[in-house]
Write a protein that binds this DNA or RNA. Structure first.
Lengths: 100, 100
DNA sequence: ATAAACCAGTTTATTTTATAGACCAAATTA
DNA sequence: TAATTTGGTCTATAAAATAAACTGGTTTAT
């Protein structure tokens, strides 16, 4: 008989980060959002946000489009299907940890 | 009129850790649990588990009692009221991030 | 027109954290 | 009694988060 072990599935390390999770949480609920908006909503520094957006983008969880709003640069982020799936999976896995 | 920002409350960094969260998740549901059991349930290495138990203990989230089971050492962990509160608070805060 | 301040980010350096591997003492097994 | 296992701890390394410094350009003030 198999032991009753290993009940905790690993949490996607890309999402198990406060700031990246907050970014994904925002993006999952909107069509898209720009850098400035995300920065304000999360209260993060630009440096940190820039790095974390890069990571999410490299993983294919979000798409980043660099445009201009007037004369100012404007970085627009949009969640991808892959990102949406990963987020859903993360939430599902996490429930195991929260005794929900 | 105040801006609609800063909607993300910070996540308790002590709990926002895969292994420590798993440990707390186990302890929140039982009277107590020993090192060996927690190790099996989480699939962690002893080294990692030892360190994380120390951190939870130092924070006052769990109590650690060193006893013997027969002749073998046995480290028993028990969640504290403070730990229970912190866990509940963490879960509550996290919901904000999960769009739940 | 020029300088100072500001905006929207990126790059880099530092600090913190997680994790595994080496290690240890005692007990068990060969 | 020597080797192995058990139940851990300690420590070195790898990875991560974060902030500080910087860039390229714009707006504002002088």
């Amino acid at each position: 008989m198999a032991e009753n072990v290993k009940q905790f599935k690993p949490l996607d390390p890309l999402l198990h980060s406060e700031l990246r999770l907050a970014v994904m949480s925002i993006l999952v609920g909107v069509e898209d959002a720009d850098f400035v908006y995300i920065k304000a909503q999360t209260g993060s520094t630009s440096g940190n946000l820039s790095v974390q957006i890069d990571k999410l983008s490299s993983a294919g969880y979000i798409e980043v489009e660099k445009t201009f709003k007037g004369k100012k640069p404007c970085t627009i982020c949009r969640i991808t299907e892959k990102g949406r799936d990963a987020f859903a999976e993360y939430v599902d896995t996490l429930k195991q940890y929260l005794a929900m």
